[in-house]
Computed example of a mutant assay.
Amino acid sequence: MRAFLTFLTLAILSGMPLAQADELLVIANPNVPVAALSPDELASIYLLKTTSWPSGPGIVPVNREASSHVRNTFTELVLRQPLNALNAYWNQMHFKGKVPPLIQESDQAVLAFVQKVPGAIGYISAGTTPQNVKILARVP
Protein backbone atom coordinates (compact mmCIF):
# COMPACT_ATOMS: atom_id res chain seq x y z
CA MET A 1 0.00 0.00 0.00
CA ARG A 2 2.87 2.34 0.79
CA ALA A 3 4.27 1.83 -2.72
CA PHE A 4 0.92 2.68 -4.28
CA LEU A 5 0.56 5.85 -2.20
CA THR A 6 4.11 6.92 -3.08
CA PHE A 7 3.38 6.30 -6.75
CA LEU A 8 0.12 8.26 -6.52
CA THR A 9 1.84 11.19 -4.78
CA LEU A 10 4.61 11.32 -7.40
CA ALA A 11 2.08 11.18 -10.21
CA ILE A 12 0.09 14.07 -8.74
CA LEU A 13 3.17 16.19 -8.00
CA SER A 14 4.54 15.68 -11.49
CA GLY A 15 1.25 16.75 -13.03
CA MET A 16 0.91 13.40 -14.77
CA PRO A 17 -2.69 12.44 -15.52
CA LEU A 18 -3.53 9.50 -13.27
CA ALA A 19 -5.07 7.45 -16.06
CA GLN A 20 -1.68 7.35 -17.80
CA ALA A 21 0.49 6.99 -14.71
CA ASP A 22 1.81 3.46 -15.12
CA GLU A 23 -1.66 1.97 -15.34
CA LEU A 24 -1.62 -1.67 -16.41
CA LEU A 25 -4.32 -3.92 -17.81
CA VAL A 26 -4.49 -7.53 -16.70
CA ILE A 27 -5.69 -9.50 -19.69
CA ALA A 28 -6.73 -13.11 -20.19
CA ASN A 29 -7.63 -15.45 -22.99
CA PRO A 30 -11.29 -14.85 -23.94
CA ASN A 31 -12.23 -18.39 -22.82
CA VAL A 32 -11.07 -17.91 -19.23
CA PRO A 33 -14.10 -18.54 -16.97
CA VAL A 34 -13.76 -15.45 -14.73
CA ALA A 35 -14.74 -11.81 -15.27
CA ALA A 36 -12.46 -10.05 -12.76
CA LEU A 37 -9.59 -10.68 -10.34
CA SER A 38 -8.53 -8.93 -7.16
CA PRO A 39 -4.89 -7.97 -6.51
CA ASP A 40 -4.61 -10.85 -4.03
CA GLU A 41 -5.93 -13.33 -6.61
CA LEU A 42 -3.43 -11.99 -9.15
CA ALA A 43 -0.56 -12.38 -6.69
CA SER A 44 -1.66 -15.95 -5.97
CA ILE A 45 -1.65 -16.74 -9.70
CA TYR A 46 1.75 -15.15 -10.36
CA LEU A 47 3.30 -16.90 -7.36
CA LEU A 48 1.86 -20.20 -8.64
CA LYS A 49 -0.27 -20.73 -5.55
CA THR A 50 -3.38 -20.82 -7.77
CA THR A 51 -2.74 -22.91 -10.89
CA SER A 52 -6.14 -23.50 -12.48
CA TRP A 53 -9.23 -21.48 -13.29
CA PRO A 54 -12.52 -22.37 -11.55
CA SER A 55 -13.98 -25.26 -13.57
CA GLY A 56 -11.66 -24.42 -16.39
CA PRO A 57 -8.20 -24.94 -17.88
CA GLY A 58 -4.86 -24.55 -16.14
CA ILE A 59 -3.63 -21.01 -15.68
CA VAL A 60 -0.72 -19.98 -17.91
CA PRO A 61 0.71 -16.74 -16.46
CA VAL A 62 3.05 -14.67 -18.59
CA ASN A 63 5.42 -11.95 -17.39
CA ARG A 64 7.27 -9.19 -19.18
CA GLU A 65 11.07 -9.40 -19.17
CA ALA A 66 12.85 -8.59 -15.89
CA SER A 67 14.16 -5.22 -17.14
CA SER A 68 10.70 -4.03 -18.22
CA HIS A 69 9.20 -1.00 -16.51
CA VAL A 70 5.79 -2.65 -16.92
CA ARG A 71 6.99 -5.73 -15.00
CA ASN A 72 8.55 -3.60 -12.26
CA THR A 73 5.24 -1.76 -11.82
CA PHE A 74 3.29 -5.04 -11.72
CA THR A 75 5.73 -6.58 -9.23
CA GLU A 76 5.63 -3.55 -6.95
CA LEU A 77 1.87 -3.01 -6.98
CA VAL A 78 0.54 -6.57 -7.22
CA LEU A 79 3.16 -8.93 -5.79
CA ARG A 80 4.25 -6.35 -3.19
CA GLN A 81 7.58 -8.04 -2.56
CA PRO A 82 11.11 -6.74 -2.96
CA LEU A 83 13.15 -8.27 -5.76
CA ASN A 84 15.46 -10.19 -3.39
CA ALA A 85 12.46 -11.81 -1.68
CA LEU A 86 11.03 -12.84 -5.05
CA ASN A 87 14.38 -14.28 -6.12
CA ALA A 88 14.54 -16.34 -2.92
CA TYR A 89 10.95 -17.49 -3.47
CA TRP A 90 11.70 -18.66 -7.03
CA ASN A 91 14.83 -20.47 -5.83
CA GLN A 92 12.65 -22.41 -3.38
CA MET A 93 10.03 -23.10 -6.04
CA HIS A 94 12.72 -24.32 -8.44
CA PHE A 95 13.67 -27.03 -5.95
CA LYS A 96 10.01 -28.05 -5.82
CA GLY A 97 10.03 -28.51 -9.59
CA LYS A 98 8.07 -25.34 -10.41
CA VAL A 99 9.21 -22.74 -12.89
CA PRO A 100 8.30 -19.04 -12.88
CA PRO A 101 5.76 -17.63 -15.35
CA LEU A 102 6.75 -17.51 -19.00
CA ILE A 103 8.33 -14.31 -20.31
CA GLN A 104 7.43 -12.22 -23.35
CA GLU A 105 9.52 -9.29 -24.57
CA SER A 106 6.82 -6.70 -25.32
CA ASP A 107 3.20 -5.77 -24.67
CA GLN A 108 2.37 -6.90 -28.22
CA ALA A 109 3.99 -10.30 -27.57
CA VAL A 110 2.03 -10.70 -24.31
CA LEU A 111 -1.17 -9.76 -26.11
CA ALA A 112 -0.55 -12.25 -28.94
CA PHE A 113 0.35 -15.03 -26.48
CA VAL A 114 -2.74 -14.46 -24.34
CA GLN A 115 -5.00 -14.34 -27.41
CA LYS A 116 -3.76 -17.74 -28.61
CA VAL A 117 -3.12 -19.80 -25.47
CA PRO A 118 -6.11 -21.23 -23.55
CA GLY A 119 -5.95 -20.29 -19.86
CA ALA A 120 -3.32 -17.58 -20.43
CA ILE A 121 -3.15 -14.40 -18.35
CA GLY A 122 -0.78 -11.46 -18.70
CA TYR A 123 -0.45 -7.74 -18.16
CA ILE A 124 0.24 -4.88 -20.53
CA SER A 125 0.51 -1.12 -20.28
CA ALA A 126 -2.85 0.64 -20.48
CA GLY A 127 -1.63 2.48 -23.57
CA THR A 128 -1.75 -0.77 -25.54
CA THR A 129 -5.08 -1.46 -27.22
CA PRO A 130 -6.19 -4.98 -26.27
CA GLN A 131 -8.20 -6.98 -28.79
CA ASN A 132 -9.75 -10.44 -28.50
CA VAL A 133 -8.94 -10.76 -24.77
CA LYS A 134 -10.77 -10.25 -21.48
CA ILE A 135 -9.68 -7.40 -19.23
CA LEU A 136 -9.73 -8.84 -15.71
CA ALA A 137 -8.26 -5.92 -13.78
CA ARG A 138 -6.66 -2.50 -13.95
CA VAL A 139 -3.55 -1.81 -11.89
CA PRO A 140 -3.43 0.47 -9.93
Rank of each mutant, 00 (worst) to 15 (best):
E65Y: 06
E65A: 14
A66F: 07
S67F: 01
S67W: 00
S67P: 02
S67G: 02
S68D: 10
S68V: 05
H69G: 08
H69R: 06
V70N: 02
V70H: 02
R71K: 11
R71C: 03
N72K: 12
T73K: 04
T73F: 00
F74M: 03
F74A: 03
F74W: 03
F74L: 05
T75W: 02
T75P: 02
T75R: 12
T75Y: 05
T75E: 10
E76Q: 10
E76H: 07
E76A: 13
E76K: 11
V78W: 01
V78L: 04
L79D: 06
L79P: 00
L79T: 07
R80V: 04
R80D: 00
R80N: 02
R80C: 10
R80Y: 00
Q81A: 15
Q81D: 02
P82D: 14
P82H: 09
P82G: 01
L83R: 15
L83K: 12
L83D: 12
N84M: 11
N84L: 07
N84I: 06
N84E: 11
N84P: 04
A85L: 09
L86F: 07
L86H: 10
L86P: 03
L86Q: 11
N87P: 03
N87E: 15
A88F: 09
A88S: 13
W90T: 01
W90H: 02
N91S: 14
N91D: 15
N91W: 10
Q92A: 14
Q92Y: 09
Q92M: 13
Q92N: 11
M93F: 10
M93L: 13
M93N: 08
M93Q: 15
M93H: 09
H94K: 15
H94G: 08
H94V: 05
H94A: 15
F95C: 05
F95W: 15
K96H: 11
K96V: 08
K96Y: 06
G97Q: 05
G97A: 10
